[in-house]
C-alpha cells in the first residue's frame, strides 16, 4: 500500500468555562503560533468547521496545507487521519474492508481511514473519479454503506481536501457537482516576508504540533456549531444574499450563476464568521468576507481570458456590483 496514514491521538482538552467567543479566540491564537501570518486562512477554516462543512485547500505544495489541517484537528481535540490520494486507490482504501475472521467464522469490518473526525485528503484530484465519489458520498451523507450495512461516521466529521492547481497532468479534476460538496475553498499563498523569516528561524512545525494542547473538546465544538446555526439573519441580509446569487445568474461574466445550495452555503459560512466576530447577527460585511471562499470554486468565468483572475478579485467585483438592499 502506498498510502500514508498517520494518526494522532487527541490529547485531553483543557476544560474551561469560557464564552464561545473566548473559546474561539483561544483556538485562533494557538493556531497562529504555529501557522504564521495566515490568520485569515485559519479563520476561514474555522468558520468552515463551525458551519459543519468540508474544506478544500487549493495551493502549491509546501505552503502549509497539511500543517493547517493538522493544527485544526489538534486544537479542536479531534481524531486526525491523513490519506495521500493516488491514482491506484480504491474506494475500500478509504472506507474500509470486510475481512474473514477465522475465530468468529464471520466477516469483520475493518474501518478505513475515513472513520475519523478530521480527515485530510491530500491531493484529492490524483484519485480516480470512482474513489473520489466514494469519499464525496461519505462527506455528504456523513455515513458509509458497505455490503448492505450502513455505518455512521463520527461526530463531528470534517474533511479537509487539498489539491495542487498547477500540476494537472495525470489528475482527475473534480467536476463542479463534486466541488460543490466543499463548503469553502481557500488558497494559502506564500507567507509574507516577516512570517517566513520567523518560520525559518523557529523550530520544526511538526514538533510543535505534537506538543500542541487541544483548546476545545468535541462537545464544546458541537455546541459552538450549534451557536453558529443560531446566529440571527435579518430579512435585509437574506435579501442581500439573494441579490448576490441573482446577480451571478443574470450577469454574463460566468457560465452559470450560484445555485440555491451555494446561497445556503454562503449564509451558513457568514453565520459562522459572525460568531467568530463575536456577534449574534450577520452583517453584510460577514457575507462579503467569506464570499471569495464560497464562490471561488463555484463560479466558472464565461470567457477563458479571465480564468486566471483569482477568487478575491471575482468576489470584489461581485460585491461592488450588488448594492445592499
Amino acid at each position: 500500500m502506498q498510502q500514508l496514514i498517520d494518526s494522532a491521538a487527541p490529547s485531553s482538552p483543557a476544560v474551561s468555562r469560557l464564552s464561545p467567543h473566548e473559546q474561539l479566540a483561544a483556538v485562533i491564537n494557538a493556531a497562529q503560533r504555529v501557522i504564521l501570518g495566515k490568520e485569515r486562512a485559519i479563520r476561514m477554516a474555522l468558520a468552515c468547521v463551525l458551519a459543519r462543512g468540508h474544506l478544500l485547500i487549493e495551493d502549491l505544495p509546501g505552503v502549509g496545507k497539511t500543517t493547517l489541517a493538522h493544527v485544526i484537528a489538534r486544537l479542536l481535540g479531534l481524531d486526525f487521519q491523513r490519506v495521500q490520494f493516488t491514482s491506484d486507490m480504491l474506494p475500500a482504501d478509504i472506507i474500509g474492508v470486510s475481512v474473514f475472521d477465522r475465530d468468529s467464522a464471520s466477516f469483520r469490518f475493518h474501518p478505513g481511514p475515513i472513520f475519523t473526525q478530521v480527515m485530510l485528503a491530500d491531493e484529492i484530484n490524483r484519485a480516480t473519479p470512482k474513489t473520489q465519489s466514494a469519499l464525496l458520498e461519505a462527506m455528504e451523507e456523513r455515513q458509509v454503506t458497505t455490503e448492505g450495512e450502513t455505518r455512521r461516521l463520527p461526530e463531528p466529521f470534517f474533511v479537509i481536501a487539498t489539491q495542487n492547481p498547477s500540476h494537472q497532468i495525470g489528475t482527475f479534476p473534480l467536476p463542479e457537482s463534486q466541488l460543490d460538496r466543499f463548503l469553502l475553498r481557500i488558497e494559502l499563498g506564500y507567507p509574507d516576508p516577516a512570517a517566513e523569516r520567523e518560520l525559518l528561524a523557529g523550530i520544526d512545525r511538526r514538533e510543535m504540533i505534537k506538543t500542541l494542547p487541544a483548546s476545545l473538546s468535541p462537545p464544546q465544538l458541537m455546541s459552538l456549531q450549534q451557536a453558529a446555526r443560531a446566529v440571527h439573519v435579518a430579512p435585509a441580509l437574506i435579501d442581500y444574499v439573494q441579490s448576490l446569487a441573482a446577480y451571478t445568474r443574470a450577469a454574463p461574466d460566468w457560465q452559470a450563476g450560484l445555485s440555491p445550495r451555494a446561497a445556503i452555503a454562503l449564509l451558513a459560512v457568514a453565520r459562522a464568521w459572525a460568531l467568530l466576530e463575536h456577534r449574534d447577527h450577520v452583517l453584510p460585511e460577514d457575507v462579503q468576507a467569506v464570499l471569495p471562499g464560497v464562490i471561488g470554486h463555484r463560479l466558472r468565468p464565461a470567457d477563458d481570458d479571465s480564468r486566471k483572475v483569482g477568487a478575491d478579485v471575482t468576489a470584489a467585483r461581485l460585491i461592488e456590483a450588488v448594492p445592499l438592499p
Binding site: 460585511e285 462579503q288 460585491i319 461592488e320 456590483a321 448594492p323
Partner: peptide, 9 residues
C-alpha cells in the same frame, strides 16, 4: 458611501 459597502466598513 458606496451602495455595496457594509455599515461597519
Amino acid at each position: 458611501w458606496h451602495d455595496w459597502e457594509g455599515p461597519q466598513d
